[in-house]
Design a protein around this nucleic acid. Structure first.
Lengths: 147, 147
DNA sequence: CATAATTTTTACGTGCACGTTAATTATGAT
DNA sequence: ATCATAATTAACGTGCACGTAAAAATTATG
């Protein structure tokens, strides 16, 4: 069982460099890996989607690493809520947390949809431009403009 | 007739700062404005869409200013092709130019579509996450967990 | 066990897209 | 004409997300 990877392999699997992983760790985006003999970092393959998610939010939404850190932190809290048997004690806290996570997700959705609209407009502009270019191109053909 | 604006007004109309406009000019994204008495820059409002286009390509596609400069330069060339009565002399050149512009536009469209797919996936992920959160939220309601 | 390959920490360097002075010159309003 | 605004050039500064180099320690391989 390859239950843990060293930084080089893990980085390759994520499509990033070791430097990037250490940087993410430093900024709180990745958990400090459990170092078995307090020497080298060990990563579970389970973490690969997390890194991919970081890159996704970075490239698709132009979020800063700090913003992404906050998002992931909240999601982590909700996840632990799911797993740990919830004492009714924390019921109030739980509600607050869920509300916060919900509004955050709604905000993300809003930004995603705005971007989608912008991209769709751009797509249309480009298609029209392409059509004009091709019209200009056939124009000179049908008129027999060769040299 | 407000046929030309000074940099402050023009920048405000575009939603950028004067510094940004001078920077774009320095990098060849904006034409060097005709300075009436060789003093202050004068911008025609016609240029507003160009600046907005720069910002659009920048924010939606993460293109560098150099990439954008190249795109705009090609489009400008095609535009002058349209306007200037085309000597059959340049017919060969014209074809090459149109082909170049066409493939460039196709590349842009490809990137736009890839981004659209990515964003649509992200949108779906977020919607599912939101549903889970709301399920967790109603869960505690229906069980009467109040304080 | 010797040696090559990886990883560690520390620290400085980089590329991009502007921001921010500062000193000087132009313009607009009274 | 004067005085507040606005613009000009030149230069240095900034924030972000890493890249890169160096020296020491660790791990894998023959």
């Amino acid at each position: 069982m390859a239950e843990s990877l060293r930084i080089g392999q893990f980085a390759a699997a994520c499509g990033v460099t070791p430097r990037t992983l250490r940087f993410y760790e430093e900024r709180g985006l990745l958990p400090t890996p459990t170092r078995q003999v307090r020497t080298m970092r060990r990563y579970s393959p389970d973490l690969i989607p997390r890194v991919e998610r970081i890159q996704q939010l970075q490239s698709l939404l132009d979020w800063s690493l700090e913003d992404i850190r906050a998002v992931l932190a909240l999601e982590d809290q909700v996840a632990t809520l799911r797993n740990r048997y919830h004492h009714s004690n924390s019921a109030l806290n739980r509600q607050a947390l869920l509300e916060e996570a919900t509004t955050l997700t709604i905000n993300q959705l809003t930004r995603v949809r705005q971007r989608l609209i912008g991209l769709q407009n751009l797509q249309q502009d480009l298609e029209e431009k392409l059509a004009r270019y091709q019209a200009l191109s056939t124009q000179s053909h049908t008129r027999g403009e060769s040299c």
